[in-house]
Design a protein around this nucleic acid. Structure first.
Lengths: 327, 327
DNA sequence: CTGAAAGCGCTTACAG
DNA sequence: CTGAAAGCGCTTACAG
């Protein structure tokens, strides 16, 4: 059997109370001599704290849970790195749970699993919840925050301002002289998609440019959606510039354009949304609207740690344009 | 306060024993009527099981832990997907913990955190442990298995056969007529690196080809290592073919070759080890030795589930050559 | 500075 | 088919 504090107590001829105090660093009271003895014996016995017991009695835990879709968003690593670093600084553990790919049942299951352990907070990464999961989450009373995906349901989030992303990406191409601009590969049913479309349209109308709904292609931000978008635009595309709604979409457009003999940026300019490392390893390198994914992670953890305060404010992280070779 | 089974018992006028039996599906004994009543009340009260308490008393858990480095191995997603799917099929939860980047302290911490909760098993992804962490892991008596990285310390693993990878990749280029072959971007201090180098050398000597140690470049499998390797080979490389030790290394070599005006595959053939999606989205597409990452995940979970059996066998997963445009 | 006792929320023989 | 009781490994007022 694994040793418990009882075993240590017996061995050290002290009470379990004392052992507990020493081992959980409530040392203010115990004598150095006792502390040392207890620690030494714990060490000898190969003692490991039973976290279940601790959590049960203290009714708290120092665990932050991250839930994300298995969707291959190639930016989640950066967000997770931010979460991880900030959690580590605050002495918190992080556990991650994948909620499957647009699978409502698995999402529900994942949330259920998480809230049945007493986690300190929940970070939901690029996740859109159905009503049932949403209820479950709210009911749990555990602090949570959505990352990277804002939403209209008055639930707290930390993300880029997707209206601004749509607006600025479009504006950037306009400033480069483009008049016919496409918007490619986004999910027009999602809140994020709607925001970006609004921004895109606003930029066009602010500049008195016409809009053709044929220039907007929908999808789920995948590489394949990029290929499809370019096939849709054709070998002699009307649009001279396109806003790709993810780096993968951008690369897909790029590759299909090459197949078509459409030169980037000469015949077609591409600006890609996200700005992950991928933009720099393709040729030509993709100009991007770069999101602050790492900061989202940092801010997400901070948000959760301060969640006792009355004002829990959602927050936008910064975006910036990085010009490379595709525009 | 969150409701407990006590609250349900009171409300339903039954004992906590009965509530517990109903809610943990040990229904063989309870009457339908009682079960229904209990479930209904649990539902009304918004009852959530306290996993800490359950784990404490049953001394088991249905959680599998994955520990991985934050290193941007772009294949870990595939392994995790395999783990996730197989765990899900077996009713297990998966938690993931990042152990930092070659950070011994954080690795130790990560393992400690994991074993302080009563997890059912531990999967270590592409991780090399120092002695201290290794001891901790073994002492814990929790079943574990290394994934993707074999090792020489007699610890169980599931991975590709890296000797074979080195051998076959080299052999492939030899069969294409190459006589001067490079091996790029690998860590020659790691067990994996050594295996691959052995395979590479064996393939050369089996075919009576000469070896120049200048043709082997070391690194940590990163994109930058790819760039550096090509810089090392130079604008007029001696080698006519190169084995890239990760897809990222392959892309790095490709891009630097382009800058040098070295044409792939005409002037330089590249075969890249891993075969992730990246190979298909670059231009020209990279020929690869493709590893079965998803299967590693599946097999890892199965290994842990059968770990009570006396024979715990490490296992190699299959590799295959996928010819694309870079050779 | 230290210890006895109660209790966290659950499960599980055991008895009826 | 159901319940009383013990116990999982820990923490924490409280008392001395």
């Amino acid at each position: 059997m694994k040793p418990t504090i009882k075993d240590i107590a017996k061995e050290a001829h002290v009470s379990v109370t004392t052992v507990s105090r020493v081992l959980s660093n409530k040392n203010n009271s115990n004598s150095d001599k006792t502390s040392k003895k207890v620690r030494k014996i714990a060490q000898q016995l190969g003692y490991r704290k039973n976290t279940s017991a601790v959590e049960l009695v203290t009714r708290t835990s120092n665990v932050l849970a991250v839930i994300l879709t298995a969707t291959h968003t190639n930016f989640s690593d950066e967000i997770i790195a931010g979460i991880q670093d900030q959690a580590y600084k605050n002495g918190l553990d992080v556990i991650i749970s994948y909620a499957g790919e647009n699978n409502a049942h698995r999402q529900f299951q994942s949330i259920k699993t998480i809230i049945e352990r007493s986690v300190k907070g929940i970070l939901l990464l690029a996740l859109e919840l159905d009503e049932k999961s949403r209820q479950l989450l709210i009911q749990s009373k555990i602090p949570y925050v959505f990352l990277s995906l804002a939403n209209d349901k008055k639930m707290p989030f930390i993300s880029s301002n997707d209206f601004q992303i749509g607006y600025q990406a479009t504006k950037y191409l306009i400033d480069k002289g483009h008049k016919k601009i496409g918007l490619a590969g986004l999910d027009d049913k999602s809140f994020m998609g709607k925001q970006r479309i609004s921004g895109y349209k606003k930029a066009l109308s602010d500049n008195k440019l016409k809009l053709d709904s044929e220039w907007i292609t929908t999808g789920l931000f995948t590489y394949q959606d990029g290929l499809n978008s370019m096939k849709h635009y054709g070998k002699r595309p009307q649009v001279t510039g396109v806003v790709a709604n993810s780096d993968l979409v951008g690369v897909g457009i790029l590759n299909q354009a090459r197949k078509f003999g459409v030169k980037v940026p000469r015949d077609l300019a591409i600006i890609s949304i996200d700005g992950t490392g991928l933009c720099q390893i393709v040729h030509p390198q993709l100009t991007s609207i770069t999101q602050s994914f790492y900061e989202m992670g940092i801010n997400g953890v901070n948000f959760l740690l301060n969640s006792k305060e009355p004002r829990r404010l959602s927050k936008f992280t910064s975006i910036k344009i990085e010009e490379r070779e595709s525009t």
